[in-house]
Simulated scan of single mutants.
Amino acid sequence: MPIRRAPLVAIATAAAAAGAAPLLSGCTVPVAGVAGVTVGKDGSPVGVIAMCEEHVDGATLHTDAEDPGAQEDAGVWKHDGPITGLTTWPLASPGDGWTAEKPFGRLAPGQAYRMYAWTEDDSWSTSGVSFTTEDLAALTPGQVRYGADDMIGTAPLEDFREKACEGF
């Protein structure tokens, strides 16, 4: 499936709008940032979080399925302090304050995954990023994939850092 490139500001605006929906409906956690994924020099996946407001405490990567009951965690990470601003971490070997609560395993070719960040008290989250191993193979180090569904985009890390929060 080709990557549909969307302007980063459109992703941030959509994430901010999604964050306002819970205030009206009370159904989900408010969105205060944007999650993304990139690859290291060796091609291994690296998580990326840009917080626009507030903070998050950790991140989860799960199989992407329409039925939430069919989703399985592929990795869960917790940070030793609140995450604000921009952070990155290698999914297979976290460091710099990251601890793997559920160690990251191998990604299955053809399986869709989704990663997002959260707070322990469910007060804030980030938008999620959907991807497959094929999507990761198309990235170069420092190129961030962000967004979900029909709002997928890629941007160099510096552009992601500068523009992720424009819609908040």
Rank of each mutant, 00 (worst) to 15 (best):
A92Q: 05
P94L: 08
P82W: 04
K41M: 07
S25Y: 11
G110N: 05
K41F: 09
I83Y: 11
G36F: 03
G97A: 00
K78N: 09
I83A: 07
P22T: 12
D73A: 13
H55N: 08
G47C: 01
K78L: 15
T84I: 06
Y113Q: 04
F131M: 11
A59G: 10
P68W: 15
C27S: 15
L24R: 00
G33D: 00
A16G: 10
V56M: 04
V56T: 05
P45H: 00
G75D: 00
P22M: 15
T38W: 04
A138P: 03
E72I: 15
A92V: 05
F131E: 10
V76E: 11
A16L: 09
A100D: 06
A14P: 04
P82F: 09
P45F: 05
A92D: 05
T99A: 11
L91D: 07
D64Y: 06
A17L: 09
A117G: 11
A15S: 09
A16Y: 07
G47T: 07
D64N: 03
A16S: 12
V34A: 10
G69D: 14
P22Q: 11
E72K: 15
A70T: 05
P109A: 14
P94T: 13
A65P: 02
A21Y: 13
A18Q: 12
I83E: 13
D64P: 03
L23E: 15
